[in-house]
Every structure is written in C-alpha cells, then in structure tokens.
C-alpha cells in the first residue's frame, strides 16, 4: 500500500516504484502523487520503473493516465528505466504509450524534465527533446 516512497527534490517529485503493485495499490499511488503535486506545486514528476518487472495493460494505462492528469495540473512527467523485456512485452501487447516522455535513467530524466519545464510555454506539447538552440 503505502510502500512506495514519494520524494521531493527541488522542483521535482521522484517516485521510485520498488514493489509489485496490485491494482488498488497502484490506484492509491496515483492519488497520492496527484495530492503531493497539488500540495507542493512542483513542476516535474519523475517515475522510476527500473525495478518493475511487469507492466500489464492496467499498470501501463494507469501510468499514461497519471501523466495526462499531472499535465492538466501544469506538471510534466518523465518515466525512466523501463526494462527491455517490459518494453518488448508492451509493444507485443499492443499498448500505445506514445504520449509518455521517457528517459534511460534518473539522471537523463531529470535533465529532460528541466528542458521540458523551461520550454513549455515556447513549444507547447511538441517533443521537448528536439529543441534547437
């Protein structure tokens, strides 16, 4: 349940998912994240899934929806560290997660968040990674 830590570092919230979440726990985590953003007003959310072995259609959809909700609140989301087996499975499953921004690791993820947040007003929702100086 409350096993997942939500860390606030600077202007970002970092959520490392370390356990296998069952459906209700995942829903609770979503609510918890949204509440924290409401309370703290951070501009970036980073979800680390490098310890997650299984992302099925439920969890996949929940992650995409969380990012959408968070964006409505004026915050950007980056998902980092997805395992290659998980990626291949999601692709085979046919789950579309295109709207979700991703990075290889936390470091890259934080850098991406920074550019996304600072370019938000200039570029709207176009791909922040393809900014030209």
């Amino acid at each position: 349940m409350g096993d997942v830590t939500i860390l606030k570092i600077g202007n970002n919230i970092i959520v490392p998912i370390q356990t296998e979440l069952h459906d209700n726990a995942a829903r609770e985590l979503q609510t918890e994240i949204l509440r924290r953003i409401e309370r703290t007003g951070v501009k970036g959310l980073l979800i680390d899934v490098s310890a997650v072995n299984i992302v099925d259609s439920f969890l996949g959809r929940l992650l995409v929806e969380t990012a959408k909700m968070v964006r409505l609140m004026g915050t950007e989301t980056v998902l980092v560290g997805m395992k290659k087996e998980v990626v291949l499975t999601l692709i085979q499953l046919g789950l579309k997660m295109q709207d979700l921004h991703t990075a290889l690791n936390i470091e890259d993820g934080l850098a991406l968040l920074e550019t996304m947040v600072s370019n938000r007003f200039l570029q709207g929702r176009s791909h922040a990674k393809f900014k030209t100086e």
Partner: peptide
C-alpha cells in the same frame, strides 16, 4: 515504427 516506439519507451530517441 514498432522498433522506434520500443526505443522510445526505453527512453532513447
């Protein structure tokens, strides 16, 4: 496209 979206899910371009 499938291969590209797999790479993107990993966090690469």
């Amino acid at each position: 496209i499938t291969a590209a979206s797999a790479a993107q899910l990993m966090g690469a371009e």
